[in-house]
Amino acid sequence: MTAAEYEQAFVVGAEHGLHARPAGQFVTLAAEYKSEVLVSRGDEWVNGDSVLSLLSLAASPGTTLRIRAVGVDAEDAVRRLGLLIEGRES
């Protein structure tokens, strides 16, 4: 497989938004992938490997976030991380 880029938007569904624990879960899950993961709210992009950067997005329930991954497992990474953002995977 060659490096690929994949990006998709998700709506934050977790009851309290993207707070500390889901952000920690996100970083832990992102670390399982080889791809580099980025997350944005509007025009602001942050690294998906930093809990504090994710928290700085101040993403409350209903906020749309975009997840972008670059690497051999980009699509799978975005899909699973997206489920987490939506509160459908913990």
Binding site: A20, R21, A23, G24, V27, T28, V51
Partner: peptide, 8 residues
């Protein structure tokens, strides 16, 4: 608190 947020 750290272990709550980053269990691993």
């Amino acid at each position: 608190a750290l272990r709550l947020i980053v269990p691993g």
